[in-house]
Write a protein that binds this DNA or RNA. Structure first.
Lengths: 349, 349
DNA sequence: CTGTTAGCGCTTTCAC
DNA sequence: GTGAAAGCGCTAACAG
């Protein structure tokens, strides 16, 4: 392993100073005579020079990398989000450090800390077990945060929100417009604000349209989700459907808190020989990639995951470069994606 | 934004030297008297000291971060892989820089270069458009590579292989054992070595069991996949199935080059009212998470994505820490995951 | 325009 | 055990 070539070597060989070499090699707009510039470039190429960014970073105190903290990249929603983030980061010369928190508060804490130690000045985070003290302190010291979904209470940071409540409302209203009056809701525990909002949207729509809410059609898992469980949402969809199907009267449509859960619902319905959407309609939430791949293709509410990632990243980088000086709060809007899992019920008065 | 606290500040306040502070704060095993050590720790806490790793990195020339280059994190196979990598990296004190290459050779090249500039000494890479010159050069300068799937020809790097050929063989043999004799193959273009191997496995099994190979049942996309296309594999599965179903004689089973393609196949079969597995059986390859969620659950070949990620990362980190000195080549074995998309055909002689 | 020089924050000889 | 001092590779005043 031979010694690294540094700007010092180049300066020597080109008969100039490290300052000048630095000026041309770092694309500074500092004026350097054309001849000299070209000579430096030539020597750099000859020597096969590769800059050591650590040197620059130490000096400029800017690591040109951001962090992303999400529960798990294995969740397709976060995968798209991260892709959006990374695409933007890349195009703007940044790298992204990926951190899977597994929803573990200790891990999350450790991540933001070590990221900051590595001079990462911007972090995009979904699910922060708001360790207010640490976060506040780091923000104080120059950390910039863009958060998803949950408000990081009272902290100086930007947010990208999604209108879950309206999403829930739109989904159920859509069902009502298709003639459904018996609409069930199946969900994982309402431990997350997003799911709670979706649930409220469900109730809002029913209320507003004067449709009776039947509590036995609301199946929400009681047990808290364990990180270790593979495909928790899917399996929960199955379980909740089993419970629902035990009831005397069955609904004509099921609205699910997310697509994964909907897949579980569809799976159990199929297992029990119930045809979708002829006998029971199913509606999801999220519009992950696979929603179009299941049979029948799932009608669902679109959450613009990839776009959210891009926005979050642009917002963060703009903040880092002082293009944006104030905290920004963005509320993204839901959209219905109509496919084939919902039937039309004729008014049979 | 107040000034950063450095070991210098601590040294001053604790009446000692930066050397000693460094020794205790960096967990060096260098002996420091208990009293002094505790005092330093105390002062560090008081001052709310956060180490600046860039300083250390410049000195030690070790960034404690690895890079991962994959086509797209949006592909569930890579998502699991990356999760495995990140879990290990995290547990061993490393961070992971995620790079989505979109199979773009230029981007890939740019990534390995900028990663190296950031003093990333280890990279796990899937899909490298073997820019031999650059890679060789960087390896020469201390880069360590662990590659997936494709051999990085003649380069000094470790590899994690998966026995695609045997996987293809096992899948088709499984089908044969279930009584199938008319077995189709549907695939994206064979531009990647992995898919080529799977295809060979398909032919091997048919040959070896004396089953006739009917070329019209082999539907392989001709057109090269575009990066921009969403869900290319899925849609290709649909297209190829359409073509297949135009044939005079239909197969009783379809073996797909991967699960995503299989979903497309299942989708089109459903659209045309063909029941799975009663009329046509479908077999996938990969065993991504969603294989168990579709209807019917997909019988497929397991590729141990998460485990591969863990192995690759452990291997890389062992190499970086000189625990492993030689290049390692690991060949992972396929396994059948039996679900409900394959029927048994009774011998009707 | 160009070069000298002083660090960025940390680790690590080397001397005491 | 401890501290002084020399950098790691780079940038940015500042002086010329």
């Amino acid at each position: 392993m031979k010694k690294h070539i540094t700007i010092y070597d180049i300066a020597k060989k080109a008969n100039t100073s490290t300052a000048t070499v630095s000026r041309v090699l770092s694309n500074s707009d500092y004026p350097v005579k054309k001849d000299l510039r070209e000579k430096i470039l030539k020597v750099a190429k000859e020597l096969n020079y590769i800059p050591n960014m650590i040197g620059r970073q130490l000096k400029t105190n800017n690591s040109m990398t951001i962090g992303v903290i999400i529960p798990s990249i294995t969740n397709p929603f976060y995968a798209s989000l991260v892709l959006g983030i990374e695409d933007i980061a890349q195009s703007r010369g940044y790298h992204v450090l990926l951190c899977n928190s597994h929803r573990n508060p200790e891990l999350e804490k450790k991540y933001v800390k070590t990221l900051f130690e590595k001079q990462v000045k911007g972090v995009i985070v979904s699910s922060i077990s708001s360790n207010q003290r640490l976060l506040g302190e780091l923000i104080e010291k120059g950390l910039n945060l863009v958060a998803f979904d949950q408000t990081v209470e009272g902290l100086n940071s930007s947010q990208i929100h999604f209108d879950y409540r309206k999403g829930g409302f739109m989904a159920v209203e859509y069902l009502i417009n298709k003639g459904h009056r018996k609409i069930a809701f199946i969900s994982s525990p309402l431990s997350r604000p997003s799911r709670r909002s979706t649930y409220h949207g469900y109730r809002d729509a029913l209320d507003q349209h004067g449709v009776q809410i039947k509590e036995e059609w609301i199946q929400i898992a009681a047990r808290e989700e364990e990180d270790s469980e593979k495909n928790y949402e899917f399996h929960n969809g199955i379980e909740m459907t089993k419970k629902l199907l035990e009831k005397q009267e069955l609904p004509t449509a099921i609205f699910c808190c997310n697509d994964m859960t909907a897949f579980g619902v569809m799976n159990e319905l199929a297992t029990q020989g119930i045809r979708i959407p002829d006998q029971i309609s199913v509606m999801g939430f999220d519009n992950i990639e696979f929603a179009e791949m299941v049979t029948p293709p799932l009608t669902t509410i679109q959450q613009p995951d990839y776009e959210m990632g891009r926005m979050a990243c642009n917002l963060l980088l703009d903040t880092l470069s002082r293009k944006v000086k104030e905290n920004v709060n963005i509320m993204l809007q839901p959209k219905i994606v109509e496919r084939k899992s919902v039937s039309i019920i004729e008014e049979s008065l």
